[in-house]
Design a protein around this nucleic acid. Sequence first.
RNA 1: CGGAGUGUAGCUUAGCCUGGUAAAGCGCUUGCUUCGGGAGCAAGAGAGCGGAGGUUCGAAUCCUCUCACUCCGACCA
Length: 437
Amino acid sequence: MRLSQFFLPTLKETPAEAQIASHRLMLRAGMIRQQSAGIYAWLPLGLRVLNKVEAIVREEQNRAGVVEMLMPTIQSADLWRESGRYDDYGKEMLRITDRHERDLLFGPTNEEMITDIVRSFVKSYKQLPLNLYHIQWKFRDEVRPRFGVMRGREFLMKDAYSFDLDEASARVSYNKQFLAYLRTYARLGLKAIPMKADTGPIGGDLSHEFIILAETGESQVFCDKDWLDLDVLDKAPKSAEELQSFVDWATGFYAATEEKHDEVACPVPAERLHSARGIEVGHIFYFGEKYSTPMKATVTQADGAVAPLHMGSYGVGVSRLLGAIIEASHDEAGIIWPEAVAPYHAGIITMKAGDAASDAKAMEVYDALTAKGIDVLYDDRDERAGVKFADMDLIGLPWQIIIGPRGLEKGVIELKNRRTGQRDELSVADALARLGA
RNA sequence: CGGAGUGUAGCUUAGCCUGGUAAAGCGCUUGCUUCGGGAGCAAGAGAGCGGAGGUUCGAAUCCUCUCACUCCGACCA
């Protein structure tokens, strides 16, 4: 993409409403624009990242054997009356009335709807287990939206639901998601730590929050330092037994949120205890028959008896993840995208506008990269070098290719790594090779 | 939902206390000079001060109502 033909409204000054780094940087980098409290338009650069994050979440769900579908944003209040949550949910639920005076709502989550769908088609234990997910916009009318996409009212969420015959089987579904979550965050370049979460009235050990560490996190968390060095991407359990031992292993390290942390009872010695701020980016939960019983989602078992389904739900805040990634990866100059989600792999800057040799070389590099399928953003604007550098640092592409008359005289161009700041003078061929072209 | 606060040009803000008919920087337009880390000079365009009502000879400034947004607290992917 040539920047002159793109739409990248970067801001030099920080809009007054932005308090935290990710919000400030997303606004300044021209990724989002607030349209109402907690509601954002996704501008082209932001959408590219959102799509990349979404794609990784989707790939890992698919890898775990979860099947994608898509449910509507608008739901009928009747389903929620069945589960009893229509009255319980409170003002967080955006309630809508249509022209026929029917009560509708903008879905804050989809347990009721998915339960309705499954109960109408699944009648036999032979159809289980069933694992479904969708990635859809949700709306929760938060009293106080803030921090940009980190706590918006409208947000994109991946929510998966598992249906099993019994708790033992549900545990396998749960474990699959547990692994998928760790894989997903690792691929996003995040260190996410599963922490035991409140299981509510169901009890048991099947609920975890996934928390990433970032200075501006909303809550204090504690974990075993050993967690910080783990690599989960090399783990590939094949059987249910291997999967269970993986989960046992992964949950064996100490990790607790502030509310659950007890300095005295903590099994990890102080020198190995890591304390940091955390942001919740996912939550998985087994809730058994909570919805299947009131909504009569039952199957016939092998012995002919009829029993309610055992369910679990698994959420990832996709849009929130963008904020979380930036919180975990930025500096004074701007965003530093992990390569897996960067809106473009590299950016090209020409130092001297109107210099024919530079422009020609830039196009040569641009074409070579594009031909190899590498996304590249070429800043071909008639701007001064400083402006281009500042914008390129701000939007945080992993690599910057700097082309100017001085270098060309020596037959080199510069390759700058956004994260390390390291700059190397290389021949075009070497630079392209470094970028994988 | 309780408490606090802010709405003035595209953005960041000054002006409001002590009413006299809107100011600056950035951005934008044009020209010239520049061009290796957010250029310089010059000339321009652009707001009637969130909205409605009121007080007054006169309101961005005072009063009332209303809307929006932000911050602190309780709550959440």
